[in-house]
Every structure is written in structure tokens, then in C-alpha cells.
């Protein structure tokens, strides 16, 4: 067989495999939209669940997810950005830096359920926060740290070295240089990374299983120390633990969660494209 012909066949096979990877994504999204769209209405989104979750809405789960995600990112963002600043601006090429980098890689690889155990051990039991919004948010914050550090570091490293030199040459201190000549220009990249990390965290279930999530709690959390309902966990229990659950509202819950996550991803892409187009240097 000549080379041209085998190339044609090979490319055909490659295309087929690529489609086999990508098309199921569309299938998942389509099926959830198709089955779930009928469940979604104002009442479903804004009322409490009732009748053992078989009827009513998913309002507390939506609110719980938003609280949880915002709180966790508020905790993780400052630490993550400062860690990225340390790595990109201060760290020398030494053993400590190598250990930090390895730790970040590992933190990113720890299974989500192990984070759940850790959160249970540290926040719920040792620090006596109990199963609550705060414990869950802290657990998720540590979990999203690697993503925020990595993307922020990437964003910082794209700011030209010359900005730092100019600022330093004017007698401006190192921190002020970072604060005023580097950080503002890394902000779009940091924002993109943060939004992406939020979207990932919003869909996590295992880390909050034993740290924050309530099985059934038809009211809104009143404080940081309240248990909360959360969308992904809610979806998990209504699809596996509740007999005779109307499939319409299961799909509806899945759709709401999916929309929430994809919307954040979309926002991240918009932010990235916007700043890329308006890049000033």
C-alpha cells in the first residue's frame, strides 16, 4: 500500500476516534437539556423541596451551591495568588521551590474523596466546626488552590520582565513593583483561572459529603455553621437514594447544575478573549 493511501486511512481513523471522544459530550448535554428543560420553571428554581424531595423546587440547593462556591473562592484566591507571586517573583531555584512545586502537583492529584476525609478530620472534628458551610468551603478552598496557583503563576509570568525593571529602576520597592507594575497586568489571566476553578468546584460532591452537605434541609443556611443543601449532592441522592423520584426533576436538577457550570466556563472564555483582544503590550 502506498504511503499516501495509508495516510488517508490513518487520518480517517484519527478523525473517527476524535469524534468518539467529543460527540458523547454533546450527547450528554443534549439528553439533559431535552429531558430537563420541561422541569425548569420559576417555581422549580425558587421554592423549597417538599414531600421527601419528590416535589417542590431546588431553591436551597442552588443557594447553598452559590454560598459554598463563593466562600471557598474568597478563601482560596488570596492564598493562591500570593503563592503564585512567591513562586514567580521571589522563589529562587532551590530545593524548597522544587518541593513546593511537587506539593502543588500532588495537591492537584489527591482524590476528591480524600479531601472529604481530610476536611472531616481537620475542620469538622479537630477544629470543631461541625458539618457546615464553613467546613465545606475550607475543604474546597484547599482543593482549588493548585488550579489558582498554577493559572495565576502562568498569568504573572506573561508580564514582561521589563515592567519590573522599569519600576525597580525608579527606586520602587519590590512588593510595590509587583503590586503596581505586575499584578494589574496579570489580572485577566488570574480572573480566568479563578472562574475556571470555581466552575470545577461547583460540581464537586465527594469533598462535601462529610463536611457540609445536608441530605434534606428545606430552608436556607443562616450562618457559616449551618449545614447546607448543594446541587451536585442533591442530584446524587435524588438519582440514587430516593425511590419513585420523578425523573423529570432529576433531569431538571442536572440541567440547572450543568447550566451553572457551563455558564462559568463560558464567562471565563469571554474574559480571556476580551482581554486577549485588548492586550496592551
Amino acid at each position: 500500500m502506498d504511503a499516501k493511501k495509508s495516510q488517508k486511512i490513518a487520518f480517517g481513523v484519527l478523525l473517527a476516534t476524535t469524534l468518539a471522544v467529543v460527540l458523547p459530550v454533546l450527547f450528554i448535554i443534549m439528553i439533559i437539556i431535552k429531558e430537563g428543560i420541561t422541569a425548569i420553571n420559576w417555581r422549580f428554581l425558587t421554592t423549597m423541596p417538599s414531600n421527601g424531595m419528590r416535589s417542590g423546587g431546588i431553591f436551597p440547593a442552588i443557594v447553598g451551591t452559590i454560598y459554598l462556591v463563593l466562600l471557598s473562592v474568597a478563601i482560596a484566591l488570596p492564598v493562591g495568588v500570593m503563592a503564585a507571586i512567591y513562586l514567580n517573583e521571589y522563589a529562587k531555584d532551590n530545593i524548597l521551590t522544587r518541593i513546593i512545586k511537587l506539593s502543588i502537583v500532588n495537591l492537584a492529584g489527591v482524590p476528591s474523596v480524600v479531601y472529604g476525609l481530610f476536611g472531616l478530620g481537620l475542620f469538622v472534628i479537630f477544629l470543631k466546626f461541625g458539618v457546615c458551610l464553613l467546613s465545606g468551603a475550607l475543604t474546597l478552598a484547599i482543593m482549588e488552590l493548585p488550579v489558582i496557583i498554577t493559572t495565576s503563576k502562568e498569568a504573572l509570568s506573561t508580564v514582561p520582565l521589563s515592567f519590573r525593571e522599569v519600576s525597580l529602576s525608579l527606586g520602587v520597592s519590590r512588593w510595590q513593583t509587583i503590586r503596581y507594575a505586575v499584578l494589574p497586568h496579570a489580572l485577566p489571566g488570574i480572573m480566568t483561572g479563578t472562574i475556571l476553578s470555581i466552575s470545577r468546584i461547583a460540581g464537586e460532591t465527594a469533598p462535601i459529603l462529610f463536611t457540609a452537605a445536608a441530605f434534606y434541609l428545606p430552608r436556607l443556611p443562616g450562618s457559616l455553621f449551618d449545614q447546607i443543601m448543594v446541587l451536585p449532592y442533591h442530584l446524587f441522592i435524588i438519582s440514587t437514594q430516593i425511590p419513585n423520584m420523578p425523573s423529570k426533576s432529576t433531569y431538571g436538577t442536572a440541567l440547572v447544575l450543568l447550566i451553572l457550570v457551563l455558564m462559568m466556563n463560558f464567562t471565563a472564555i469571554v474574559v480571556r478573549t476580551y482581554f486577549r483582544m485588548n492586550k496592551k503590550w
Binding site: V22, I28, I32, T205, P232, L235, A254, N265
Partner: peptide, 13 residues
């Protein structure tokens, strides 16, 4: 987008 879909949603489907 696949990476973005929560694992419970994948599991459910």
C-alpha cells in the same frame, strides 16, 4: 467542555 461537566452529572447520564 467535557472536563467541565461535573462527575455526578456524568454518572447520572
Amino acid at each position: 467542555m467535557l472536563a467541565a461537566i461535573p462527575s455526578v452529572v456524568v454518572g447520572f447520564v
